[in-house]
Design a protein around this nucleic acid. Structure first.
Lengths: 232, 232
DNA sequence: ACTGCTATTATGTCTGCACATAATAACCTG
DNA sequence: CAGGTTATTATGTGCAGACATAATAGCAGT
């Protein structure tokens, strides 16, 4: 047969996914070529391509020119996390966001930080400590190195607008990386967050850079109970 | 002018991104229509569409029919995490993976677990505790509820093949969710992982389900120092 | 004002065709 | 038979044109 006429690339994707899930196309197996599938479903090859490309993007399929398309044997599941601004995160929980600027000065960066940011040893950056509150309770303790050399002037009053928010509105859409880990609260964190020293805290670390220079390195210590969750 | 002939949808994407980064198109601003951009760049509208759709997928642009395309005001950054099988994760670090099956039996699920999986109270599931080792050192302590009703038979010897790996090869491509958090090691975790009770551990929790029934709920307690990292 | 219909508009997607590219298979030659 | 060259093949991407769809704006009638 040729032309069972399923409609839309999402329908194609769904059908392919169904065949994979039912093991009609088991892990590691090759699937028909785009042309064959296009003929079977009665659509253009571009439509099949769209569906298969989407599945490949999700790690379900592996595609190689000339070889063809195979079902991933050991699927590397890909989850996409949304990383909102802290204020949005708090407000999404239905709580009121506020923050307190605890420290804001300029100091020489420690060697590990300098090397991680690709700066010369002994470079000086701004150092900001901000405590974010949800309904008045400590939510996140934000410690940030900030490179004033790459920032637009004038710098605002960071006691009035959160660094976090000012940055995304001013130097948005940059590259960088993000890491999650767990750590015991040190004395400073325990004091600021109002928890016992040694409490397990969820830590988010982000570096942000322009193509030329580092912009910021931030460490967020989240209050106990914090989770980052997403559907797969 | 019409037809500056930049080539390829990735070039279009790069150019659009450049204009956004340089604030030529500031956050919240509308950008020209696909047709206009196609004319300006001297490409087909489909090519512009591909580029803009990709940027919208990354949270940089917001698109709505009829309204047009605007630069996200408060960009919700999206990071994609790759979640490999534990063996792959260990081997990617250049270490040798091994594991020990500590517990494997059937028991009644606690109420919170049952409700989270959508099972009746008092349901019975398999319970497996597996310790994964990297070069002989504890790496991850895996505690898993497993629904035998939905699994293909015969079940293998989980002392010989890791549940983790058997599952992805047998009941692959299902839906579910994943969450990361931090927790203090309890007595059992401390004992198994060889750390002091109360040590901050990085926790990964995943539920997996078919459209009809839950498959598994797993909690991974990672050894101290573990980080999950990704580029943005 | 307010409501409901219609026209407009930008994006979403599809088709059919073409050529580019990468990876493999087949072949030819020494 | 080894090694390198060429042909084949499946995917990647491009184009132009078309229709579908959602959201908005404007207009008419009450």
């Amino acid at each position: 047969m040729s032309g069972t006429a399923i409609g839309g690339w999402e329908a194609i994707r769904a059908e392919v996914l169904r065949r994979i899930r039912t093991r009609q196309w088991p892990p590691g197996a090759m699937i028909p070529t785009e042309e064959d599938l296009a003929a079977e479903f009665g659509v253009a090859r571009a439509t099949v391509n769209r569906a298969l490309r989407d599945l490949a993007g999700g790690g379900v399929l592996e595609r190689r020119r000339k070889s063809g398309t195979r079902v991933s044997a050991l699927p590397v599941r890909k989850a996409t996390l949304e990383i909102p601004v802290i204020r949005q995160e708090v407000e999404a929980r239905g709580q009121a966001h506020s923050f307190r600027l605890l420290v804001c000065d300029e100091r020489a960066v420690p060697v590990p930080v300098a090397s991680r940011l690709g700066l010369a040893e002994g470079a000086r950056l701004m150092w900001l400590e901000t405590l974010h509150l949800a309904d008045g309770q400590p939510f996140v303790f934000e410690c940030r190195w900030l490179n004033p050399a790459v920032l637009p002037r004038p710098l605002p009053d960071f006691a009035a607008i959160s660094v976090n928010e000012w940055l995304v509105s001013q130097v948005s859409y940059t590259t960088g990386d993000i890491a999650f880990s767990a750590a015991a609260a040190d004395a400073r964190e325990a004091d600021v967050m109002g928890v016992a020293p040694g409490t397990a805290l969820f830590i988010t670390e982000r570096t942000t850079r322009t193509p030329d220079a580092p912009i910021t390195l931030v460490r967020l210590s989240h209050a106990p109970g914090y989770r980052v969750q997403t559907a797969v």
